[in-house]
Simulated assay, not measured.
Amino acid sequence: MTSLYKLFKYNLIFIAMVVMVVVLSVAGCGKKGPPSPPRQLAVPSVNNLESKIEANNVILTWTVPEAKEKESPPITGFVIRQAKYPLSEEICENCPINYKPIAEVAADFNGNDRKIKYIKQLDKGFKYFFKVTAFSKNMTSESRDSNIIKFDY
């Protein structure tokens, strides 16, 4: 009876070990975390935003940036953002600027002339800040901010 008991005991241990190995191998590897979106190539950003003041208008111009990677989504438009503060208001050096989108411009250009122009009427007595971001179709991807234009008017 003791030999039958030992055989049953060893079979039970063997089965338990096999079950543990199967459970541990199926349990996975690594730490579970929140889902992350698939990697998406960035839209190239505008880096040559310029301004010119004529009459009561500011004329913003920039060049449509070329993609550095072939798989980058094509630029379909731009968002112009503006911040406007009274000249009497002090703006601290490290305070965030409160930009608001004021317009969307399609990335329409002819041939080799990749220049885009946007005209905005100005009000006297304000500090103005402008920046531009590029976006792809259906705004699925947006670029980093352009250089910032700031002036008093």
Rank of each mutant, 00 (worst) to 15 (best):
E89V: 01
L7W: 00
M139Y: 02
V46H: 05
D113C: 08
I116T: 02
Y153G: 00
K31S: 08
K9H: 05
Y118L: 08
R114G: 04
T76R: 07
I119F: 00
I119G: 02
K150W: 02
K84W: 00
Y128C: 11
E69N: 12
P96S: 14
T63V: 10
P38V: 13
A42C: 05
I91W: 01
V43H: 01
V43M: 07
F126C: 02
F8N: 09
K137A: 14
T140L: 13
E54L: 12
A107M: 05
M20G: 08
E104S: 13
K100L: 14
A42D: 15
V64F: 03
P73E: 11
N110W: 02
E90Q: 10
Q82P: 01
R144K: 13
I91L: 15
F129N: 06
F151I: 07
N56H: 06
L41A: 12
D113A: 11
L87Q: 04
M1H: 03
V79A: 14
T2Y: 03
T63A: 09
K31E: 13
V46F: 04
G77P: 04
Y118S: 10
V19R: 06
N98H: 10
N56M: 05
P74K: 11
K68G: 15
A55T: 07
I91V: 09
A42V: 05
D152E: 15
S136F: 03
K137W: 02
G30W: 08
M1W: 01
V132I: 13
S136I: 04
P74L: 13
V105N: 06
K68F: 05
I80G: 02
Q121R: 11
K127Q: 14
C29N: 11
T63P: 02
V19C: 12
I15R: 03
M139N: 08
Y128P: 06
R114T: 09
E66T: 12
Y10F: 11
S146A: 10
S141L: 08
N138R: 09
